[in-house]
Each structure stands twice: as C-alpha cells, then as structure tokens.
C-alpha cells in the first residue's frame, strides 16, 4: 500500500510538472485527490491494514495529499502569472497616440489675471469693493477733485448719459463710495469695467478694466505706498523685477506717481516692447488728496492714505504677449483656449 501511495505521488507530481494550463491542474486534482480519485481509492483499502500500519499509512497518505495540493497551488500560481503576462503582452497599446479630450472650459485670460491680482491683495488684508458702471458725474469727477471744466476731463473722453450721469471713466469713484460708507482703517481694491470714448484699434477700446486700490488709516505714508506696491509687483512679476516710482500728476492724489517696472521682455536693456527705455509703465498711484478725503468726510489732519489704479488689459497683454486688445472682446475659441 505504501508503494501504491508513493506511486500516486510520483505520478501526480509528474503530471503537475508538465501541466501548462489551469484545466490540467483541475483534472489532476480530481484524478488524484477527488472523491473518486486514486488516493481515495487507495485509502478505501485501509481497513485491511494492521492496527500498527494504519497510522503510519494514514500519516503518509495525508502527507502525500498535502504535497500534491501544495504542488497544485504553486503550479496554479505559476500558470496564472504566466497567463497574465501573456495577456498583458497582447494588450500593448501605442501610448504616443493622442489622448481622448475630457471637456472642460476655461476662464477668460482677463479673469485669470484679475484673480491673481485679487488674491495677492487679499493676502495683504484687502477687501474687494464694487460700484456702479453708470455713475454720477459727482463720484467720477467732482469728488475726485476734478471740477467741471478741469483740463483733466479733456484726457478722459467721457460717455454721457445725462449732464450729471456718465459711464464711469475710471474705477476711482469706488474710492469715494467706500470712504463715504466706511470708517478707516480702509484697505480695498475695486476691480471693474470702465468706459472711454476711444475708437477701437489694437491698443484702444471704449471698454476696458481697471483695478483701483485704496488704503486709509492713521499715519499711512508714501513709504507705505511704495512698500505695498513693490510687494504686489514682486508677487506678480517676480522678485527680481525692478520698480521705479516716477513723479506724475493726477487730480485726486498728491504727491502722485507713475510706476514703471524693468521691462519683462529685455530685463531693462531696451527693446521694442519697452521702446528702448528699459522700463514699462504699469500703474498710477499717489497719496489721496486731502480734498478728496475731506469730500468724503474723512479728516485729512488725522488720516492719510494712498490709492492706485492698474489697467488690467495692459497687465494681461504683457503677461501673455498679446499684441491686440481687440482679441479680449472677440472671444474666438482658438484664443480663449490658449490660457
């Protein structure tokens, strides 16, 4: 009997050794270990054995069973792995073929730049203020120290609705509205759409966007103005950007300045982008004129502040190398898809 068992083991292991698929393994399991299998058949003759032989043969039978089972499992794992490898081999694809587009849309480039600017100022403790686009002459001009017949009105070709209602020519009227409603400390930016009666061409549009900034508090200095705007410019254009504050004139700030940055195209050496100057003008700013503070009910003897105005299109054109302002309002998908 022992011999028979050994033979089963030998035969089984030989079959398993040569097996190349799962079916053969299963057949082998049934043939050798199944209820009607060879091992069972042998064990059915156990009754004829002596009392002493029985446990020995029993143990041997169990050992052979588990040996065969182990072999089946090992072989099964081996074959499965091989099969999987073969399958994977047959599934090779060309990964250089184009991907299948998943439809998502995009923000307009002006919104992208605007968001960037908003986030920078929010990080510096600014809130975002808004105001009407159809605005009283008072807020757009008079309260900003631009009385009727002031020459500064010449440079801002204004669309009029009535004698005292205009399409705002700047976001500065929001300054006045904020100061009328809010007590210092004030730190706001006011982005928005503005209108000037300019015919459309590559660098002019009757509709464009500005971002106004206003800070009013006790003891705000021109040095603070420089620090705040330098920080903003470094966030937007990089830490290496040089910043130049150049005296200028605006009716609603005194002292006033225009701010130039070292040309982002040539780094300041002079090129066609900066017209050889090495500098590019990006915004206007200044200390809020005491008359403007007083017009809004804020005592200029106690409080001081600064304001600035940034042209959004100009910043976006510089950032993305866009050479024609009209593209922003044409909304050709081939344009919108690039940002």
């Amino acid at each position: 009997m022992k011999q028979k068992l050994e033979e089963i083991k030998k035969n089984a292991l030989a079959v398993l050794e040569n097996a190349v698929d799962i079916e053969t393994l299963e057949e082998a399991r049934i043939k050798f270990l199944g209820k009607k299998g060879e091992l069972t058949a042998v064990l059915k003759g156990m009754g004829q054995l002596t009392k002493e032989e029985r446990p020995v043969i029993g143990a041997l039978a169990n050992e052979i069973r588990s040996t065969i089972e182990n072999h089946i499992d090992t072989k099964k794992a081996e074959i499965s792995q091989k099969l999987e490898e073969m399958k994977l081999k047959s599934e090779v694809i060309d990964v250089t073929m184009p991907g299948r587009a998943q439809k998502t849309g995009k923000l307009h480039p002006l919104t992208k730049v605007m968001n960037n600017i908003k986030n920078t100022f929010i990080g510096m403790g600014f809130e975002i203020a808004e105001g009407p686009e159809v605005e009283y002459d008072y807020y757009n001009f008079e309260a900003l120290n631009i009385p009727p017949n002031h020459p500064a009105r010449d440079t801002q070709d204004t669309f009029y609705i009535t004698d005292n209602i205009v399409l705002r020519t700047q976001t500065s009227p929001i300054q006045v509205r904020v100061m009328e409603k809010t007590k210092p400390p004030i730190r706001v930016i006011a982005p928005g759409r503005v209108y000037r009666s300019d015919a459309v061409d590559a660098t002019h549009s009757p509709v464009f966007h500005q971002i106004e900034g206003l800070v009013v508090d006790k003891g705000v200095t021109m040095a603070d103005l420089k620090g705040t705007l330098e920080m903003f410019i470094h966030r937007l254009y990089g830490e290496d950007t040089k910043v130049r504050f150049r005296p200028h004139h605006f009716p609603f700030t005194e002292p006033s300045a225009e701010v130039d940055i070292s040309c982002f195209s040539c780094g300041g050496k002079g090129c066609s982008v900066c017209k050889g100057e090495g500098w590019i003008e990006i915004l206007g700013c200044g200390m809020v004129h005491p008359k403007v503070l007083a017009n809004c009910g804020i005592d200029p003897e106690i409080y001081s502040g600064f304001a600035f105005g940034i042209g959004l299109e100009r910043i976006a054109m510089g950032k993305y190398d866009i050479n024609d302002l009209r593209l922003f309002f044409e909304n050709d998908l081939r344009f919108l898809d690039q940002f």
Binding site: I122, G125, F126, A223, D224, G227
Partner: peptide, 16 residues
C-alpha cells in the same frame, strides 16, 4: 523715499 509695509490695525482680507 524708503520702502515700508503697512502698519497699524490689521485687516482681514476677504471676498464677500
């Protein structure tokens, strides 16, 4: 003119 950062009462920057 020196370059300084805003001092005074801190304000919380936020969107409405």
């Amino acid at each position: 003119i020196p370059v300084t950062l805003l001092s005074g009462e801190a304000t919380c920057g936020k969107k409405t």
